[in-house]
Design a binder for these strands. Sequence first.
DNA 1: CTCTTGACTGAGG
DNA 2: GCCTCAGCCAAGA
Length: 109
Amino acid sequence: MKRDTLNFFDKVYEVAKLIPYGRVTSYGAIAKYLGAARSARMVGYAMNGSSGKDVPAHRVVNRKGLLTGKHHFDGTNLMQQLLESEGVQVIENQIQNFEKVFWDPAKEL
DNA sequence: CTCTTGACTGAGG
DNA sequence: GCCTCAGCCAAGA
């Protein structure tokens, strides 16, 4: 099998799609699940190509629960509204009850 | 090949 | 608990 053939980006997309509704995860959690805990930055970098895909990038935030990547959506509060639409309370780019809505693929999956 | 940049994280002060 | 520094990895110029 050529799982290694799958680009790091593709793996990130797959995991991102697995994020349940009303839940969020961190780049590091995804990276760790992929076996590249040190490549958390690559996860976010990969999301650069998530545009136009079925990847719910708005459910992916940094370890602080901060919407660091909101600027990559449309440049406004779109990312925040998407999360709130799913039941995730977000205030000033900061996810409330982050520990409750946090979804760890390495544990939940 | 080398240098820079980046949607990050952990450790130290 | 917040701020700053350093480390990591991959892609683009």
